[in-house]
Amino acid sequence: MKVLVIEDDKATADYVGGGLREEGHELDHAPDGPTGLELACSRPYDVLVVDRMLPRLDGLSLVRALRSAGQTVPILFLTSVGGIDDRVEGLEAGADDYLLKPFAFSELMARLNALMRRAPTRREETALVVGDLRMNLLARTVTRAGVAIELQPREFRLLEYLMRNRGRVMTRTMLLERVWEFHFDPKTNVVETHVSRLRAKIDRPFASEMIRTVRGSGYVLDA
């Protein structure tokens, strides 16, 4: 789950962010309304956690702006503004849930999971970007530092999977299952061969390598 926390109180943001990361989720943090609005409009998130009392653009105005722009991402208000009228106002502005401070992280996590279970399909990504490596998922093109890179279909699929999991070690078994749809070991070096071909195209012509072998574990791609 990828979460955007829009919260000006550093202690709260650190508490929520630390708990989410411990649960294995990705997190971005915005300390004010305009920054949160820009991030929410420019990057794909699974859920937003928004404070109502934000600098420069309050949470209600932010949520209304997102809904007016057609954003359907689930939104949870996390706030100390807790009167019945306040909660009704927040939900009518477009939020999906409302949690009062102080709160237990376990309840926050349960509410986020509930939002994810009933959330509409996440908006389709059109591009993946890692450092200077860019993949256009609609045009099926890849560039690095602005240079076009020609990939075979299986190489493209392998790179897409590595980019979607940037910074994480992908084992040989994971790659066989997700890229080749093998649920058994074919006893070949098909993974190693394709990784080598991919490196020859996106690493060797450039100044730095992005695909790294983690000995005994698998492969990781990162800038």
Rank of each mutant, 00 (worst) to 15 (best):
F206N: 07
S61W: 02
L112Q: 06
L175H: 08
V169P: 01
M1W: 09
H29F: 09
D8I: 08
S80D: 09
A104I: 12
P153G: 09
K201W: 11
A145W: 05
A40T: 03
L159Q: 08
V5Y: 03
D97H: 12
K2N: 04
E23W: 09
Y15D: 06
I84P: 10
L137G: 02
L60P: 00
A127E: 08
R21A: 14
V49T: 09
G59T: 01
N189E: 08
R199W: 10
G131I: 06
M116H: 01
A127Y: 08
R52P: 01
L198K: 02
L175M: 15
V129D: 03
V169T: 09
L37Q: 03
E7K: 10
M135W: 06
V220K: 11
L137F: 06
S42A: 02
L162Q: 08
G18R: 05
M109L: 15
T12F: 09
A69K: 02
L138S: 05
R21D: 06
E22F: 05
Q71H: 10
Y98D: 07
L99D: 02
E107K: 12
G19S: 12
V49I: 15
E22Q: 12
L151I: 13
L158A: 11
L91M: 12
T188F: 00
R215F: 00
A207W: 07
S106T: 14
M174K: 14
L100E: 14
N165L: 02
D203L: 09
M170K: 13
M53L: 15
E26W: 10
T35S: 01
L48T: 00
E209Q: 06
R140M: 10
E89C: 13
V190K: 11
A65F: 02
C41F: 01
V191Q: 04
I149D: 11
L151D: 10
E181L: 12
D86E: 15
R67N: 02
G83F: 08
R122F: 04
L115A: 00
L221D: 00
L159I: 07
V88S: 00
T121P: 04
T171F: 05
V179A: 07
R157F: 07
V190H: 04
E22D: 07
E124V: 06
N136L: 07
K10D: 13
V3T: 05
R56T: 10
A11I: 15
R56Q: 10
E92D: 09
P205G: 12
L138C: 09
D86S: 11
R43D: 10
R21W: 05
E22S: 05
A127V: 08
L60W: 02
Y219K: 04
Y45R: 00
V81L: 15
G131K: 12
E7C: 11
T213L: 02
L128H: 01
L133R: 10
L159Y: 11
H194P: 04
T35D: 00
R67D: 04
A13G: 09
D222A: 11
K187Y: 05
L198W: 08
A11F: 05
M1P: 04
V50A: 00
N189Q: 12
P153A: 07
S208K: 11
G82P: 03
D96P: 03
A13T: 01
E209C: 08
G33H: 01
P44V: 07
V147S: 02
T12P: 11
E181K: 11
